[in-house]
Amino acid sequence: MPIVQQLARKTLPYLEHELASDFSRNRYYGSKFQADSVAYRDYKYFAKKRPPAESPSLVVGLRVDESASMSAFGRLEAAKRAVIAVYEFCQLCQIPVLIFGDTADVSRLEQMSIFAYVDLDKPDASDRFRLMQIRARSNNRDGMALRIMAERLAACRQQTKLLISISDGQPKAMDDYTGSYAVADMKQTIQEYERKGIAFLAAAIGQDKEVISGIYGKERFLDMTNLHEFPAKLVRMIARYL
């Protein structure tokens, strides 16, 4: 929290500047009379308040891989800390945030599972506690998870739409969703939604960093080898998009 609060203190002045309204002068009508304009005798004696800019013009989506392998080497706890850090930073800076977890193949009837911890449409003071339910479960069908979240973000009015995936491994789910087929599905999803204005970042915290980098591309890849630095690095990365 001290790191998050420090970053928020540095960020907020920029947001306040962007939010500040100004008056456009030389109007025939408006809410403010400009006495110094009378000399021009053009009847444009008023100033009208400009509406505040949409700010911050950023919405953040955070996708957490809840595959079973996330339970190894402290990855899940690091992911939770990072998610909490992002959530608290977004709350302090009033940035809309969407946080979903996902897994696959819990059962034959439940091939894909999405857990909405923080929803854009239903912000709740209890969201920060709900994030503690993030846990390692089964497999991961990354392409569908990204597609579901990207579709939600694409409908948002904010100018910058950032979707971050926290994962420790390559996609793997039942019925051959693995290898080149899964990689092709993910690349297609990323390309499709980048055309719709979604910016993707992959935060890799496991042994498959090279594979994840190959899927997302080096320009969208964050190597989070040092799990202790992960929360602060992720928040700083989001701050750059403001």
Rank of each mutant, 00 (worst) to 15 (best):
E18C: 06
M144L: 15
G101K: 02
E77Y: 08
V106C: 12
K161P: 04
L201M: 13
R195V: 10
F89C: 06
Q94N: 11
Q207W: 04
F73A: 11
M237Y: 09
M174Q: 14
E66I: 04
K44D: 07
F230E: 06
I190D: 01
T160W: 02
D119A: 13
M237A: 12
K44Y: 03
K48S: 10
L19M: 12
R25K: 09
T225E: 13
E77I: 13
D127P: 01
L153M: 11
A136D: 05
V64D: 00
R135Q: 14
T178L: 12
S113A: 12
C156E: 15
V118S: 01
S126K: 10
K196W: 03
L58W: 01
A78E: 06
D102P: 07
V60K: 04
L62T: 03
A155G: 03
E66P: 03
A104Q: 01
M144G: 01
D121R: 13
A20H: 03
Q170C: 14
A53G: 06
M70V: 03
L153E: 02
Y241K: 06
P13Y: 13
L146I: 07
A239H: 04
V97Y: 06
K209A: 14
G206C: 15
S21G: 08
L12V: 14
P52A: 14
R108V: 13
K233C: 00
V38S: 06
I205P: 06
D127V: 02
P51R: 05
R50F: 10
R81L: 13
P96I: 11
A85Y: 04
A78F: 00
V60A: 00
R152M: 12
S69A: 13
G206Q: 10
D223W: 12
L76G: 03
R108W: 07
G61Q: 03
F100G: 01
S71D: 14
I3D: 10
A35H: 04
P231Y: 07
H17P: 04
M70S: 09
L162M: 01
V118I: 13
I84A: 10
R128G: 07
L19T: 02
F221N: 08
F23Q: 02
K48A: 12
F33C: 07
D119K: 05
H17E: 15
N26A: 08
S167E: 07
I215L: 11
L222D: 00
G169F: 02
E88H: 05
R147K: 14
D208Q: 14
M174I: 13
L146V: 05
F89Y: 11
Y45L: 12
